[in-house]
Design a protein around this nucleic acid. Structure first.
Length: 150
DNA sequence: GCCAACGTTGGC
DNA sequence: GCCAACGTTGGC
C-alpha cells in the first residue's frame, strides 16, 4: 500500500467529477517519471491525494484511490486527441495509465496553507520547481494531511 | 499574461 | 553524449 499525490486541472476533471464517474482512466500523462510511477509502482487500493492545479485556488481537494493496475492510455493512438503520440502504436505503446476512483471530497487544503505546516515541508509537491503531476507521498505525510483535513 | 523551472528534441 | 533551442507546467 502506497500513497500518491495526483494533480488534475478542475476544469478538466475535478474531485466532484472523479467521485461522480467512479473508476476512470487517468489519461493524458506525458511525462516519463509520472508514467513510471503508474506503470511500476501503483497497486489497486493505493491512496491518492487529489490535487487541483492550474486554477484559482490550487490545493488538495479530496481523496481518491488507485482502482486498476497499469494499461495503455488509449488517447495516445487517437489522431484527433490532443494527447495523440505519433510514435506510439498499440503493439508498442508508450504511455500507460491506471484507473482512479474519487472517494470523498474534503475541505480545500490550499497550496499556501500547506506551505505553513512543517510536517508537510518534505512533500515533493512543495519543493521548489516541482511540477511532476504524480508524486509519491510518504505514510507520514499522508497521515499528516488527513489529520489536517479532519 | 508572465516567467522560473524543468523536460524533450535534435543537430553535431 | 553534449547542449542550445524549444515546449510545457503551473503558481502568481
Amino acid at each position: 500500500m502506497k500513497y500518491w499525490l495526483m494533480k488534475s486541472e478542475p476544469d478538466e476533471v475535478s474531485i466532484d467529477d472523479a467521485i461522480r464517474e467512479g473508476a476512470a482512466p487517468w489519461f493524458g500523462v506525458r511525462n516519463y517519471q509520472a508514467r513510471n510511477f503508474m506503470r511500476d509502482q501503483m497497486e489497486v487500493g493505493d491512496g491518492v491525494l487529489f490535487y487541483h492545479s492550474s486554477c484559482a485556488e490550487p490545493g488538495i481537494a479530496g481523496i481518491a484511490e488507485v482502482a486498476s493496475t497499469a494499461y495503455p492510455d488509449q488517447t495516445q493512438f487517437d489522431a484527433k486527441s490532443k494527447y495523440h503520440d505519433p510514435k506510439a502504436t498499440p503493439e508498442n505503446p508508450r504511455w500507460m495509465l491506471v484507473d482512479v476512483k474519487g472517494v470523498r471530497k474534503t475541505r480545500l487544503l490550499s497550496l499556501t496553507e500547506m506551505r505553513t505546516y512543517p510536517q508537510l515541508a518534505s512533500m515533493v509537491v512543495l519543493q521548489k520547481g516541482s511540477r511532476l503531476s504524480i508524486t509519491p507521498v510518504t505514510a507520514e505525510e499522508w497521515k499528516a494531511v488527513l489529520a489536517l483535513l479532519e
